[in-house]
Design a binder for these strands. Structure first.
Lengths: 201, 201
DNA sequence: GTCTATATTTTGATAGAC
DNA sequence: GTCTATCAAAATATAGAC
C-alpha cells in the first residue's frame, strides 16, 4: 500500500538512522542525498527534517552512537593479569567491529565530513577507547610481562592491525571469525611480550 | 596577473593532477567539484577537460600512478634472509607512505568511488603488492625462522599495522620517523618470529 | 507527521569564440 | 589551450496544506 499524506509511524526516526548508516557506509556521506535516504525509508525528503536538523547532524549522531556503545561494551578487569586483559581486548575489538561493519566504516572514513566542533567530540571519544588499551599495555610493561618501547605507538599499532580485519574478512571465506581472533591474538601477544626468561638447568 | 583567454602552459596537466590529489585527499572525491579543482589550478572549469575525460578518470589515474610507483619502488632481494627482507619491507612501507600522505589517503578511502572496472584494476595492483610481502613471510616459514599459522592473515595484519602510521604520525611530534620505523620493525619481527630455540648448556 | 511544491545553489559536462 | 556561456540535472532545506 502506498504511503499517503497523514500516515504515521513511531519508528520512522530509527529507520532514518538505519537508512543513513547503510547508505553512508556504501556510498560515502558526500555521495548520498537526502532524497536517497528518504526513498530508502519510504517517505519524502521533507519528512526527514522531523528527525534530524540537517545532514551533518545525521552523520554526527551515527558516529557518536557507535563510539558510545563501543566504550560501553568493552569490559576490562584491572585486577586480572595484563596478558588476560589484552587477550580480552583483542577478541572484543574484532568481534565488536565485525558485528557493525557499516558503523565501523563510517567512523573511520567520514571524519573529514564532520564540522570542526563535531570532529573534536568524536576524536575525544576515540581517544578514550585508545586509552583503555594503553592502560593495559602500561600495566604489562610495569610488571615486566610486556616489552614495548612506547606504549602509545604499540596502542596505535594494535588497533590498526585489529581494525584492518574488516577490510578483508568475509564470513563466507575459508576462515571462521574464531580462527581469525585466535591468530590475531597470537600475533599481538608475541608483538608486545617480553622474551621469556629461560632458566638453565 | 590575471590569466586570460589564450594563455598557455605546458605544465597544466600535472598541475591538474596535483590539485585533484590535494583536494580529493582533503575533502573526499565526492565532495570536490570540478570548479574547485579548476580554481586551485588557476583556470576555468571547462579547461580541465583538455586533460581528463571526466572526474572519474582523474581519480583512477591518481590511484593507478600511486600503486604503479609503489610496486616499482619496493626492491626485494630473494637471496637475502627472510628476516632481512621483512625488515626492508617494513622500513620501505613506512617511509614510502609517509612521503605521499595524500596519495595514500586517496588509495585507501576512495575505492568506493571507482567504477567496477576501475576498481578491479586497482585491486589487482594492490594484491600484487600484498603478494610481495606474503612471499617473504612464506620464505621465512619455509626455513623455520618465522612462525605464523596463516601467511595471508599475517600479510593483512602487517600491512594494516604499518599503514596505520599515517593516521597518527606527525613530523613535528615527539618521535622521529626513524624511531617509529624501528619500533614497528621490532613489533612486526616479534609478531611473526618463531620462538628462539634455547640450548641448555 | 507527512505530503507537495518550491527557492536557491551547485553540479558535471559541452559548444563555440578567440 | 583557455575562455565565456550555458544546459540539464540534482542538491539542501523550507513553507504551508492536510
Amino acid at each position: 500500500m502506498a504511503r499517503t499524506a497523514g500516515s504515521h509511524s513511531d519508528i520512522t526516526g530509527p529507520r532514518v538512522r538505519a537508512a543513513a548508516l547503510k547508505l553512508f557506509a556504501r556510498q560515502g556521506f558526500a555521495a548520498v542525498s537526502m532524497r536517497e535516504i528518504a526513498r530508502e525509508v519510504g517517505v519524502q525528503a521533507g519528512a526527514l527534517y522531523n528527525y534530524t536538523a540537517d545532514k551533518q547532524s545525521l552523520l554526527f549522531d551515527l558516529m557518536q552512537s557507535h563510539l558510545d556503545s563501543l566504550l560501553a561494551a568493552f569490559e576490562d578487569d584491572p585486577t586480572a593479569a595484563p596478558e588476560a586483559r589484552l587477550r580480552q581486548f583483542v577478541q572484543f575489538h574484532i568481534r565488536f567491529h565485525h558485528d557493525r561493519p557499516d558503523a565501523v566504516f563510517i567512523a573511520y572514513m567520514e571524519l573529514r565530513n564532520l564540522t570542526p566542533e563535531n570532529f573534536a567530540r568524536i576524536e575525544a571519544l576515540r581517544r578514550r577507547y585508545e586509552d583503555r588499551l594503553e592502560t593495559i599495555l602500561k600495566a604489562g610493561v610495569a610488571e615486566g610481562s610486556f616489552a614495548v618501547t612506547d606504549t602509545k605507538i604499540a596502542t596505535m599499532a594494535v588497533i590498526a592491525m585489529l581494525t584492518g580485519v574488516s577490510t578483508w574478512f568475509r564470513s563466507a571465506g575459508r576462515l571462521s571469525l574464531d580462527e581469525v581472533q585466535e591468530q590475531y591474538w597470537q600475533m599481538v601477544r608475541k608483538a608486545v611480550s617480553a622474551p621469556a626468561i629461560h632458566h638453565v638447568s
